[in-house]
Computed example of a mutant assay.
Amino acid sequence: MDKIFYGYLLVSDMDGTLLNDSGKLSDKNRKAIEYFINKGGNFTLATGRTIASAGRFLEEIEVTLPVILYNGTKIYDYKNEKVIYEEFIEEDRKDIITLIKNNYPTLGIEVYSEESIYIYSSCKYTDRFSKLGYDVIYDLPKEVWDKKWTKALIVGEENEIDFLEEKLDNIYGNIIRSGAKYLEIVPNNISKGKAIEKLVDIYNINFKKLITVGDNMNDIEMIKLADYGFCVESGAERTIKSTKFIAPSNENNAIEYIINWIENNLIRNKKENLNSFLERNMTYV
């Protein structure tokens, strides 16, 4: 079989990119990923999700490399059930959530620690877990403060999150806007982009053959990292404005489009250019 995608790595965000608005994987995207991998390509995910949450989809799609979780805080090898890389929120930054709870009581606050989810402050958006079948602890016991935290997530109305983002930016370290209603506190110097750099280094991937795709502000760094970084047309305005390549919306099989684009623009064009060069420079004896 012709391994036309050999050496290429496609890294995709999940929600709002790979998955449609109902959180489902389309058959066209699934078949395109299967085709890409069968033809030699590497495919993996970069998401804000947990091990369990992202892992549910790996029954539907194959990944050939470890998955980036928690917006870059953890890299996990599902095949070998092994953490490849992990960082934690600095101890002196944990108190941010108490400040937020006291000053913005309408916002929900979630703490992610040791693959458990703790609800420090409830709102209508923190109730989403009850519909998804996840084990969630609606409390933040004292002993959890002494554990290592992977991230904290602030949820609320878009205008509230806009205001809080502006207040926290450049004051409390690494704050990531992962959606209209989501603001995440993650370890300093952590992002999806930096995690991809680690993955590329570990697996000796050629940066010139890296393709990334996302939809939201937390994807901007990884999109800019790649020579061929895409934002779906349904993505956040800030992300679209900072992106050179635009793919169809997450409702219109963005991953299938990108894989076709790679084949038509990076593979076939390269072969055609090479053949044209050889024809122009061929000498006959």
Rank of each mutant, 00 (worst) to 15 (best):
D2E: 14
D2V: 13
F5H: 05
Y8G: 07
Y8Q: 05
L9K: 06
L9F: 05
L10D: 00
L10E: 06
S12E: 02
S12W: 03
G16L: 04
T17A: 01
L19S: 05
K24C: 02
L25S: 00
S26E: 05
K31I: 04
I33F: 11
F36L: 11
G41W: 04
L45M: 11
T50K: 08
A54G: 00
A54F: 00
G55P: 05
L58F: 06
I61S: 10
L65K: 08
I68W: 07
Y70E: 08
N71F: 09
I75C: 12
E81D: 08
E81N: 10
K82G: 00
V83Y: 02
V83S: 01
I84G: 09
E86K: 08
E86P: 02
E91V: 12
D92N: 15
D92E: 14
L99R: 13
N103F: 11
P105L: 12
T106V: 13
E110H: 13
E110N: 15
V111A: 15
E114D: 15
E114C: 12
I117S: 10
I119M: 06
S122G: 11
K124N: 14
K124T: 15
K124L: 15
D127H: 15
R128W: 12
F129N: 01
D135F: 03
D135V: 04
V136I: 11
V136G: 00
L140M: 07
P141S: 08
K147A: 10
T150K: 05
K151D: 00
G156M: 00
G156D: 01
I161N: 02
F163G: 03
L164G: 03
D169F: 10
I176P: 02
R177C: 02
G179R: 04
N189Q: 14
N189C: 10
K192Q: 09
I196K: 00
V200G: 11
N204Y: 13
I205K: 03
I211H: 08
T212L: 12
G214A: 10
D215Q: 09
I220A: 09
E221H: 06
K224I: 01
L225P: 01
D227A: 04
V232P: 01
S234A: 14
A236E: 00
T239L: 01
I240W: 08
K241I: 08
K241A: 14
K241T: 12
K244W: 09
A247N: 03
S249L: 01
N250R: 04
N252P: 05
A254I: 06
I255H: 06
N260I: 01
N260E: 13
E263H: 09
E263L: 13
R268M: 15
K271L: 15
K271P: 12
N273Y: 12
L274P: 08
L274G: 00
N275M: 13
S276F: 14
F277R: 09
L278I: 11
E279L: 15
T283E: 12
Y284P: 06
Y284D: 12
